[in-house]
Design a protein around this nucleic acid. Structure first.
Lengths: 238, 238
DNA sequence: AAAGCTGTTGCGGGTTCCCGCAAATATTTT
DNA sequence: AAAATATTTGCGGGAACCCGCAACAGCTTT
């Protein structure tokens, strides 16, 4: 069995390599790539279907790499291994994972045993496994009261890019007023006007972005990816 | 000579420890703390004045820890050692470093030799040294045309928190119109309306925050710290 | 001292935003 | 199928925002 490690941090890569050797004796070859683009290439060349993938990397991050890998080989099993428990990453993964494939999400702070368990579960048994720590992120100060649904999330992305209501309506195919309704529920769920001094009125749009970042609903990589999407959309509508 | 390592990643900590032993034979004791709060405590207890500090950590990050350490012992020498070349971190450090003390900033991607050099320069020779890579961050897509000056940066922070013009004016002691002038130059320097389709008009405030994040002028930690400052300011004005 | 620069402030008006109200649709429950 | 509930949409208006124009003030340059 061949396994590919995509990880830009040298120390973490060797640690992973060791854990992998210990946990899965059936592994015969371990490949290594130091960024997302190289990872895609390795996976393609070596026809590798068991991958451990870091999320934050130069050039192309783990989620983007996973998307193209899965596009070529939907049955690939990918264990994501990350420093952060951002909801933004989970959402990103959920958007690219195909029906038929297995994946997992483990934090780098997880114990060696837990990592080994996840390695076996995902790469060998093709299970889906998500570190419980990740759901515990609700603790963050004022986390969103309720999870955003997809359409709210879309509007949040557009808001975060700086689009104005009219453009959002056009892009998402909603009426102006509906966009504004979404914004209202966004403001509510993100707790825009709840915390901080109540005598202080805030700029809701900016505050919404601020809160979305603070609660890890989106992160900077999300924004950069969204910006690229927006550009292609702009190009496509002429 | 005693040295304190404040670093939450186990692998990086041991790597540092090795490099430290190689580079500085005069080191007799190496202490270790896994987060900012523990770091402050160790430094206080052990009366340590040579410190290597990670930036991104739980509880208290490196900059906050450095602030209290420097407040107690201004002559402490601190080498910051970080994954990211964010301008936000440099600004943060510049704000807390006292006149009389030495510090340095090295990226984790730096070669072992460069790290060793920095260790010697800062911890022993009490020089100030900043990794050149960090200034090269101008490359990022559309980096700010010109560096923001302090008053623009202040306004940016307030904008990012969601304050409206009137509140910013009050907090910073400027007239409403002056705040708006600052915003104008902010929009200009951050390239708010330059990139992206020119037929698309954007929400400038949100876009400014977006660009400030994309160019690493501020980061999420900056926002969280700024929010705490705002809260104490709100409490203080009654 | 006069002539520039540069930064501050007030005024005014065109936009965008936020959101209550109410009618029209769509979805779910009974 | 009827009733109840939830969403979508238009209208309208007050507030905030963006910003050109112009009057000043504090500096530096000639």
């Amino acid at each position: 069995m061949k396994v590919l490690i995509v990880e830009d941090d040298q120390f973490h890569a060797t640690y992973l390599q060791e854990a992998l050797a210990e946990a899965l004796p059936e592994v015969t070859e371990i490949f290594h790539a130091a960024d997302g683009a190289a990872g895609e290439e390795e996976a393609r060349q070596g026809e590798i279907e068991a991958i451990v993938m870091d999320l934050q990397m130069e050039h192309r991050n783990g989620i983007e790499a996973a998307r193209t890998i899965w596009a070529e080989r939907p049955q690939s099993r990918i264990l994501f291994w990350s420093n952060y428990a951002d909801d933004a990453y989970l959402r990103g993964i959920a958007q690219v994972v195909p029906e038929e494939s297995a994946y997992g999400y483990v934090l780098k702070t997880a114990s060696r045993d837990r990592l080994k368990l996840a390695l076996r579960a995902v790469l060998v048994e093709a299970q889906i496994i998500v570190d419980r720590e990740i759901h515990r992120l609700q603790k963050r100060g004022t986390a969103p009261r309720t999870r955003l649904d997809d359409s709210e999330f879309d509007v949040l992305i557009d808001l975060a890019l700086g689009l104005q209501d009219k453009s959002i309506a056009e892009r998402r195919g909603m009426s102006l007023r509906t966009v504004q309704n979404r914004l209202l529920s966004l403001y509510d769920k993100l707790g825009v006007s709840s915390d901080l001094d109540e005598h202080l009125t805030l700029n809701k749009r900016v505050r919404a972005l601020n809160r979305a970042l603070a609660t890890r609903t989106i992160n900077i990589e999300t924004l950069e990816a969204a910006q690229r999407d927006l550009k292609t959309w702009l190009a496509g509508r002429r």
